[in-house]
Amino acid sequence: MPQHKSCKKRLIQAEKANAQNRSARSAIRTSLKAIRTAATKEEALKELPNLFSQLDKAAAKHRAGFCANRAANYKAKAAKVINSLA
């Protein structure tokens, strides 16, 4: 355990950031899985705005390792999956 007050604060901040990152990453992965396993194109299209919103929020706050380019790549991959559904 840290002895300095500033080190204790950084430990608390790191734990909080880790929890937020984990939550954002989990939500994005769940949404992606729903799109990839959707039986119909309509089901996938219903989930798409949710995924885009989560990706935009994560990129804006630099959560879970998402920057604007990575979020854009995820959006493109999701759109490609939806377009492949008939």
Rank of each mutant, 00 (worst) to 15 (best):
M1R: 11
Q3W: 12
Q3R: 13
H4P: 03
K5V: 13
S6G: 03
S6K: 10
C7A: 15
K8N: 03
K9L: 01
R10C: 12
R10A: 15
L11W: 03
I12P: 00
A14K: 10
A14Q: 11
E15K: 13
E15F: 02
K16S: 07
K16Q: 07
K16N: 07
A17L: 15
N21V: 13
N21G: 06
N21L: 02
R22H: 14
A24Y: 06
A24M: 10
R25Y: 13
S26M: 15
S26I: 12
S26F: 12
S26A: 12
S26G: 12
A27C: 04
I28F: 02
R29V: 12
R29E: 11
R29C: 03
T30P: 00
S31A: 06
S31W: 05
S31N: 14
L32W: 08
K33C: 08
K33S: 09
K33N: 15
K33V: 06
A34E: 06
I35P: 00
R36T: 03
A38N: 01
A39Q: 10
T40M: 01
E43A: 03
A44K: 00
L45W: 04
E47D: 10
L48N: 02
P49A: 10
P49L: 08
P49F: 14
L51F: 01
L51V: 00
F52T: 15
F52Q: 14
F52W: 12
S53T: 15
L55E: 09
K57T: 13
K57L: 08
A58G: 07
A59V: 05
A60F: 09
R63M: 14
R63L: 10
G65F: 01
F66Q: 04
F66C: 06
F66P: 10
C67N: 13
A68T: 15
A68W: 13
A68S: 14
N69Y: 11
N69D: 15
A71D: 08
A72I: 08
N73C: 13
Y74H: 11
K75A: 05
K75N: 11
K75M: 10
K75H: 06
K75D: 10
A76I: 04
A76H: 08
K77C: 02
K77L: 03
V81G: 02
V81S: 04
I82W: 01
I82P: 03
I82Y: 01
N83I: 04
N83H: 08
S84V: 07
L85R: 03
L85D: 02
L85C: 00
A86T: 13
A86D: 08
